[in-house]
Amino acid sequence: MTAQAKPISKNTTRILGSRALLLPGLVIGIILLILCLLWSITLGAADINTQTVYDALFAFDETSFQHLIIQTVRLPRVLAGVIVGAALAVSGAIMQGLTRNPLADSGILGINSGAAFAVVMAVFLLGNPPLSTYAFFGFIGAGVAAILVYALGSMGRGGTTPLKLTLAGVILSAFVSAFTTAILLGDQETLDKIRFWTAGSLAGREMPLVLQTAPYILVGLFGSLVISRQITTISLGEDVAKGLGQNTAWVRGIAAIMVILLAGGAVALAGPIGFVGLIVPHVVRFIVGVDYRWVVPYSAVLGAILVTVADVGARIIIRPQELPVGVMMAFVGAPFFIWLARWKVKR
């Protein structure tokens, strides 16, 4: 079971060969994201043109029905998509760097299920907790799950291997999900309150929930950016990092807190959505290389774009109904995972 990941850091091929291109690239990414957001806002049961969208955002008119739709339904939805996408992608990037495991993702490692269980448990026990506490319980669940999976996955000789971590994550997910299902089956009331949330979807997210989760995720994103240099070092290997005088235990601890803030917050907002944290960091490393000072912001932008586009896809593929965005991500993500398992995991 000692499959070793090919060291991610040896991958020197990157599209943006020159450092001078990195910043303009990021700016282009952000512009692309904004275009996607506008596109997403115009789509829906009532088609609204871009001019109206612009007016609704910058010259809001209370009497206009279309403006109301945008402000109360569509804007929260796209904002949720941006936040969730950025959070999941950055948490995935950090986990991949930290564990030197190309298959790391908050969904695969069971962190999403842990957070989901904690939220369901809270609703079950406390009756009707205020929305603001969802995120809090999400963090507890994500944290406990992350620690358990990491502890299980790094047991034994050879430390953490992709197989050990993945299996530990999948099994913990199965275990925890069994309890989640048990609660939901036994308690109709909880099921009813939480149903919209467990599917992994951006539908029906309202502004207050978005605004309550956003600060945690922003702290997580900012924190990740701050420690990105140390993550680059640690992704070269524990020995190298120590040799360079880094206090690796501290860096790991802080990075873990960031992962928990990001993944827990994202789950609290959108329910469990898998594979974003798996795909985006790989694509980003392909574009910018292994310097986490750039990997982190690029991951945030590309993650936001991916979730926004997936959400648009989920809404237009089977109009007038819509798919949960989590389902869309599984369709895109699983083939990617298979590709990684075939080519990036040795043996």
Binding site: A3, T166, V170, V327, A334, P335, F337, I338, R347
Partner: peptide, 18 residues
Amino acid sequence: TPIRLILIGIALESVLGA
């Protein structure tokens, strides 16, 4: 290899679930 069988099984399981 057993490793690939398991990892790919896990991935396919999530597609089938979707």
